[in-house]
Design a protein around this nucleic acid. Structure first.
Length: 272
DNA sequence: CGAACCTCCTGCGGGC
DNA sequence: TGCCCGCAGGAGGTTC
């Protein structure tokens, strides 16, 4: 679930319930995530979150007195507000009890997620965050930046836009979708693309991600009560997960191939 | 340095 | 119904 728009939706969904509300208690039910959950996490009891930022697909929760939290949802993670009376589920690994009477539950079946406490260090200087490329929706992600990243590289363009050093937050779904909208085959060697094509790609990446965030906004309202499976993506997808189905534009059958270990989809007619 | 491949883990759907 | 296999929205790490 968590592509960038989902993470942004999570941020917006939890912020109003979390910011300024003292944390009463921290419960860690399973330390074994991608990295062990920080041993110092219980130090945040009594403190409160003053701000929540997103960088790439990382959420950064700034605490008033005890530093910050870095949370990543991995492939299968979610952060949900819950009524404590509702029974904990399998894979609810970290629980924050808030003085509001709600809980923030980190749920992650595959445990590729991250839940770190940085008591002092500037989270942006943490090694996970310090080497990231530009945000796709910021002014820093320009055609020139993408052009530079593509120069001299035979790597398929899809892998380039999924490279976090080039631009962050473009996940597997949106890589395929952006390339479709730009009319570029995912297999195209990066260096072979013209300036205008790459400029178009920058545009479609922005477009696809912003649109999805807007869609995330639709689930925002019921986010708290949501059982977590937003179905709103599917209707907007042109190619992802649609192998052999007909292109919504030209009716050609959508093709699928693994590129860089990830399933990739394209329309053989619309994308050259 | 880039590129290819591996890894962590659980759940689900398809085939038999 | 059950078992086995392949695959899944991420991304850091290793090796050459």
């Amino acid at each position: 679930m968590p592509e960038l728009p989902e993470v942004e939706t999570t941020r917006r969904g939890i912020a109003p319930h979390l910011i300024g509300v003292p944390i009463r208690e921290v419960t860690i039910r399973n330390y074994k995530l991608r990295y062990p959950v920080s041993k110092t996490l219980d130090q945040i009891s009594g403190d409160r979150v003053i701000d929540i930022h997103r960088r790439a697909k990382y959420l950064i929760l700034h605490l008033e007195k005890s530093g910050s939290l870095i949370i990543h949802l991995g492939m299968s993670g979610s952060l949900r507000l819950s009524d404590p009376a509702i029974e904990l589920k399998k894979h609810d690994h970290v629980i924050l009890d808030l003085t509001s009477g709600k809980q923030l539950r980190f749920h992650d079946p595959r445990r590729f997620g991250i839940y770190l406490h940085l008591p002092k260090e500037d989270p942006l200087k943490h090694s996970l965050l310090s080497k990231l490329g530009p945000e796709p929706l910021s002014d820093e992600f320009t055609p020139a930046v993408l052009k530079h990243a593509c120069a001299g590289r035979k790597t398929p363009i899809k892998q380039v836009i999924m490279d976090n050093k080039v631009v962050v937050g473009v996940g597997n779904i949106y890589a395929s979708e952006s390339l479709f909208r730009a009319g570029i085959r995912p297999t195209t060697p990066a260096a072979r693309l013209s300036g205008p094509k790459l400029a178009r790609l920058v545009e479609t990446i922005r477009q696809v991600l912003s649109e999805s965030i807007e869609q995330g906004g639709t689930t925002l309202r019921d986010f708290v009560n949501s059982d977590g499976q937003p179905g709103y993506f599917a209707q907007r997808l042109f190619v992802y997960g649609r192998e052999s189905e007909l292109c919504r534009i030209c009716k050609a059958p959508i093709r699928q191939k693994v590129i860089g270990q990830r399933s990739s989809y394209w329309c053989p007619k619309c994308q050259k």
